[in-house]
Simulated scan of single mutants.
Amino acid sequence: MQRHTAGTEAPENAALNTLIGACSEAAGAVYQPIAAAPPGQEAVEVNVLPCIQVSLTAATLLDRARAEDDARWPAVVEWERAQAQRTYAGRCAVAQAQEFVEKGDPPGQNGVPLPTVEQAAAMDLVSAGAEVTARWRRDPEEAVALVHELAAGGEFALDEILDEAVDAAVVVGLLALQEARTASDPSTAVELCLGAVPHITLAVALASADLD
């Protein structure tokens, strides 16, 4: 749910925007010595510490922002939890019915057990969020239509689908930043740091989406 009022920005959105700026600043700090070096200088000493610092603090920054979100709008949090319980129960019912239908079928591929009802219900929400994120990259209007389509059956709520889509985009960005910490050279570290920006920008767009 969009937890903000007119003239204010939700802490999580603010943190995401801060992270976008931090990635750009870190990349600039690494490249600055190269830009300032005299023409013809073959070797330039650079420091990838700014990229590493962004990588190390990104997840904590977002976690704190979400905690601040929850503390600022407790009534909304309570409503979202109640709504999530209802939709989760709906997905469990569907998964249970499917399990009953497939009871006589063989186990999963290579003998891997099929997911439990609870696992299937959780996985369905993750899949819905990932699908919306992927669709948004191609066409935001199609993604909004998909959110409404998924929510129409009552097994998902509009807000929880968007929240899951935001998480999907954020995770990809955080993974890119994590890779920057172990990059073999400064250029790769900078590329990974900047590579996280489109994913975090996508998360901002999803978090701010108007579904009306």
Rank of each mutant, 00 (worst) to 15 (best):
G21K: 06
S184W: 08
P140Q: 11
A151D: 00
D167F: 03
V77H: 00
L192M: 14
A89D: 10
V171H: 04
V126S: 11
V166Q: 00
A22I: 07
L150P: 00
V132W: 05
L125M: 11
L192H: 11
E191L: 14
E191M: 15
L202E: 13
P198E: 10
E142L: 08
Q109M: 12
A209I: 13
Y88W: 07
P107R: 12
T116Q: 05
A43D: 03
P186E: 13
L177P: 06
A15W: 01
P106W: 12
L211Q: 09
A152H: 08
R86L: 12
A37Y: 00
L177C: 09
R135C: 13
T5N: 09
P198L: 15
V48D: 06
T8F: 07
A168T: 01
G21Y: 04
D124P: 02
I200A: 11
P186N: 14
V48F: 01
E102N: 14
H4E: 15
A65Y: 01
Q119F: 14
N47I: 03
A157S: 11
P106I: 10
R86H: 10
Q83D: 09
V54Y: 03
D159N: 11
A165C: 06
L16K: 09
G154R: 03
E191P: 00
E149Q: 13
A67V: 08
R138T: 14
P115F: 03
D124V: 01
E155S: 01
A169S: 10
L150H: 00
R86C: 01
I34P: 00
L146G: 02
V132M: 06
Q32E: 06
A151L: 05
A15L: 07
E160H: 03
A6L: 15
L49A: 10
T182W: 06
G104M: 13
E12H: 08
T5E: 14
G129Y: 07
V126T: 12
Q2A: 12
E191F: 14
G108M: 09
E141M: 10
Q109H: 11
T133D: 15
I20A: 09
Q119W: 12
T18H: 05
L19W: 12
D212Q: 09
Q119C: 09
L162C: 04
V77I: 14
G28R: 06
I34S: 00
E141C: 04
A97Q: 15
G195S: 13
K103D: 12
L16A: 03
G153S: 04
D139H: 06
V204T: 15
G153P: 00
A37P: 04
R91G: 02
R66N: 04
L162T: 02
S184Y: 09
D139T: 05
A145C: 03
A120Q: 14
A183C: 10
V171I: 07
A67P: 02
L175V: 09
A203H: 10
H148A: 04
A176F: 11
A134T: 15
G111Q: 12
A152I: 05
P39A: 15
A130V: 12
E78S: 12
T87S: 14
D185P: 06
V46E: 03
R138K: 10
P115D: 05
F156H: 10
L194W: 10
S208P: 09
A36Q: 10
G195P: 14
R66G: 05
W79C: 05
P115H: 08
A65V: 03
L125K: 04
A165S: 06
G173C: 06
W136K: 05
A189Q: 13
Q41N: 07
W136Q: 08
E164F: 02
S127W: 08
R135Y: 03
V126K: 14
